[in-house]
């Protein structure tokens, strides 16, 4: 969680308007999903990964590691598509027998699996482009302009205090572990329960103190402040249009060739 947060703040695109990055991700993702063809999906993966790596400046190793997370989900899902029940006389690339029926991998199931996998990963690269290059603070400013104030403010406060509570829980855990709190399974369960209780009480007390501090600063029930200055990026908009055109061309070409 904190890794993605850190990456987003250090991205070279951090100061570009969140709106233009969201637009780029959504446009490319819709085209990728609409065509659903392996060629378009593969092009999407290459384009969006390149954007994150070169425009955003994310390190390849980190990016690859992050891609492994959705990859694991996609792989398990795709496995059930690739391996299917064989009818009598179906030709298969590989098969095995289980009580009741034959199962195996056929050319068409393999193609189908690959297609789904590429499509899913294409969508993931689009979302990663947005989330790895957009700091939460900038995304929240965008939400604030588009959504009812209360919702955006709640999200902002939650985002701020997740880290405080997370730190606090970490410190309590360390203290417990130093006193052998997580020795065995039953110890661990008990310690975890205590940790949850203590974190809850502390969060409650902190909320009180935050209330006092806000009141001291003249809080009247709504948050008003200056947002970060963000630069518009004509380059990104042009690239979005270009990518969209390229993807559409690849998709149309593939259809024509079939």
């Amino acid at each position: 969680m904190t890794l993605i947060d850190k990456l987003a703040y250090s991205s070279k695109l951090a100061h570009v308007k969140a709106g233009s990055k969201l637009l780029a991700a959504l446009v490319v993702m819709s085209i990728c999903l609409a065509f659903g063809s392996p060629a378009v999906s593969a092009t999407t993966i290459v384009l969006m990964s390149a954007a994150t790596l070169f425009m955003g400046g994310c390190r390849l190793k980190r990016y690859a590691k992050l891609m492994l997370v959705p990859m694991a989900f996609v792989a398990t899902g795709v496995l059930t598509i690739i391996v299917c029940r064989l009818g009598p006389g179906d030709s298969s690339l590989f098969s095995f027998r289980l009580p009741g029926a034959d199962y195996g991998v056929t050319a068409s199931s393999l193609y189908m699996g690959a297609r789904v996998m590429l499509k899913a990963l294409g969508a993931v690269t689009c979302l990663y482009f947005f989330s790895l290059n957009t700091p939460m603070n900038s995304f929240l400013s965008l939400l604030r302009r588009r959504f009812p104030g209360v919702l955006a403010e709640l999200m902002e406060l939650m985002y701020r205090f997740i880290f405080i509570i997370w730190d606090e829980a970490g410190r309590i855990r360390t203290a417990q572990a130093s006193r052998l709190g997580y020795g065995g399974f039953s110890d661990s369960l008990r310690s975890l329960g205590e940790l949850a209780a203590v974190v809850f009480i502390r969060a409650f007390r902190r909320a009180d103190r935050i209330g006092l501090a806000l009141e001291s600063r003249g809080f009247e029930g709504n948050f008003e402040y200056l947002c970060e200055t963000e630069s518009s990026s004509p380059g990104l908009t042009a690239l979005t249009a270009l990518s969209a055109a390229a993807l559409a061309a690849v998709g149309t070409l593939e259809r024509a060739l079939k």
Binding site: L140, E156, R206, I210, R217
Partner: peptide, 16 residues
Amino acid sequence: DDQLFSASVIKDVSFG
């Protein structure tokens, strides 16, 4: 941490 309510430094400083 009791006083800074915003995750963004500029937002917090400009509050008020």
